[in-house]
Design a protein around this nucleic acid. Structure first.
Lengths: 349, 349
DNA sequence: CTGAAAGCGCTTACAG
DNA sequence: CTGAAAGCGCTTACAG
């Protein structure tokens, strides 16, 4: 519908100048082969006519649509806004559009979502998988944003280092008894975060891990996590692998009369929208989504554009995954919102 | 890249059967003009060859890309996951893809985001504006999801009725002193919600409105809202126009030693992810996003497809906004998570 | 009922 | 340096 917009196309510019469409194309794309004066005249006319190229026409000719697909299997993912924004920004800067596909939380529907994108001729796909789902080799370049522990991963935050930053901070405040709160023991991301946290426990410190999924299997969905009792047992640092779990911990503690942060500190991950809205704010650690998105898009674009379209318009056959070999995770940044020292050990069990 | 995927196209099917591409096209699109037997044979061959049509080729010929744009000016909008999912689902069911565009929270960049979509030849655009930004008439069908109070609006939740449902529920529990918490007095959505709440105050009840934006202008960003004092003054119902504000209220009250819900009820809007994760859960009211998305997409599709492409491929000129005249908002549904009666009036000032 | 032709807008060898 | 031609894959009048 470029023609709807502007009413102008290559042929019209060509006609109005008495040159050929090919020359206009060459001039506009700066592919040389056109004298400076003529090129200038062509550009001026194009601007006059408000010409914008039809990406559809170009796509049909070149075999590239200039569109990337974004797949987030875990729909309700509260990181979605951050991710989508960063990806769209990076893609747009690289000259690509972003088509979304949703698998409605159903891992099995992931394939279907991907197929919808492929049918629309996307040049590449960005996937943010959940629970370490492996992405089958589809006939299209793919960038996976997950944890460095995920095979085939392209880029990710350094979740391990994020965990270290959290525990270092809590330890420096004086905390020695940590309750690490996770949701899903099968998640690479969560395991990296917890691993990092454990790796920085100070001398003589103690850490337990509370897996909510397991807890709810015995205590029922949405049940209390028993944090009051944990506090009574002397736990003072409640470090969750996500802000959502941190929020759950914070409100449960407050509801049970444990003052936060004086009676216990609560930390999360990802700096989601509510982390700064609650009282007290959550100490957390944030990903550099801008950089992660840039790396993912750059890797994808490299594969897409490195594979030259055959001169006769025969489409390229690029497939497979962008290699991530040895790429370190992108560092996470600590956001401190609670700075109280733990209560004196007198209170502890 | 359809050819990359499958290696098959119309001509190949045609060649392998000794018929013309036109006949294959007619058979596959069911446009009649082909004998039942031949059509069947063509379909079988297409399936054998794993044929999927090139949407790019089709787009160039028909002037329609089958892609819709989704614009959310308010990037960090926590409703984004819900909206994007519902829109993608409805669009996909209607045979359309969804391209996202982000204006990075900058209302001025909204136009630029829209232009990016138009350059990509989208057939229509769905906009979820914030702060009642008016959408200029772009040369492309538009559906606006906002409040019924927004001029040019296409479809929305019935925010007014949602507010009524909340207050009716609180009143039935016995609450008589309401603090209505909003953020932005210029928002149509918030005003509708607050208007609805006020319209259902029971006999002898009292309601104050706390606008956070104004409050922060004097007390500083992120400062406490003084809810403890409000509680002391006898307010027992803290009804926010969004779950985010409700969360802020809940944690501030808990932090200040006010038990929720025994000492005061907190309600929100939208049933965002954390509403069911906090302790106690937030009573809230949720939009029927599925239905809203369906209506928006249906309206858009009607305009797009009602405007026939000229036979010679001259593109249609459909423009303007889908009319919303007299369409009532889609009802919101109450989600009750707190059922305590207010504390006895003895405690009140 | 079926097929040959034209053309959507573009880009890329190729010829001049 | 410049232009005419071919063709990406499709669909739609039009002719047979």
């Amino acid at each position: 519908m470029a023609t709807v917009r502007t009413g102008s196309n290559l042929s019209q510019i060509a006609a109005s100048l008495g040159v050929s469409a090919a020359t206009v194309s060459n001039a506009l794309s700066g592919k040389g082969r056109v004298s400076a004066e003529l090129a200038e005249k062509i550009r001026a006319t194009a601007a006059d006519l408000g010409y914008t190229p039809s990406l559809t026409g170009r796509a049909l000719r070149t075999g590239r649509t200039g569109v990337l697909g974004l797949v987030l299997p875990d729909i309700a993912n509260p990181l979605f806004p951050q991710i989508a924004q960063a990806i769209e920004f990076a893609a747009s800067n690289a000259g690509y559009g972003v088509l979304i596909a949703d698998s409605r939380g159903d891992v099995a529907m992931q394939t279907e979502a991907i197929n919808r994108l492929i049918e629309r001729d996307v040049d590449g796909i960005i996937i943010v998988p959940r629970r370490g789902t492996r992405i089958a080799d589809i006939g299209c370049p793919v960038a996976v944003i997950d944890s460095p522990s995920t095979p085939g991963n392209t880029v990710s935050a350094d979740h391990w280092q994020g965990g270290q930053a959290i525990v270092e901070h809590l330890a420096s405040l004086g905390h020695r008894k940590f309750l690490l709160i996770g949701n899903n023991p099968a998640s690479n991301v969560q395991n990296d975060r917890i691993g990092g946290m454990k790796s920085r426990l100070p001398e003589g410190a103690h850490a337990d891990v509370l897996w909510i999924e397991r807890h709810e299997q015995t205590h029922g969905k949405g049940s209390l996590l028993g944090l009051r009792q944990k506090a009574d047992e002397g736990f003072t640092a409640f470090a969750a692998v996500s802000d959502l779990h941190a929020l759950r911990a914070l409100t449960e503690l407050q509801r049970a009369g444990v003052a936060v942060p004086e009676g216990g500190s609560v930390t999360g991950f990802d700096d989601l929208i509510w982390s700064s809205a609650v009282t007290p704010g959550l100490t957390t650690v944030r990903m550099n989504m801008t950089e992660i998105a840039e790396i993912a898009i750059a890797a994808l674009v490299r594969v897409i554009e490195a594979d030259p379209v055959s001169s006769s318009g025969i489409p390229r056959t690029a497939t497979g995954t962008v290699a991530a070999a040895g790429r370190p995770g992108v560092p996470m940044q600590l956001v401190v919102r609670q700075t109280s020292a733990p209560p004196p050990p007198i209170n502890r069990a």
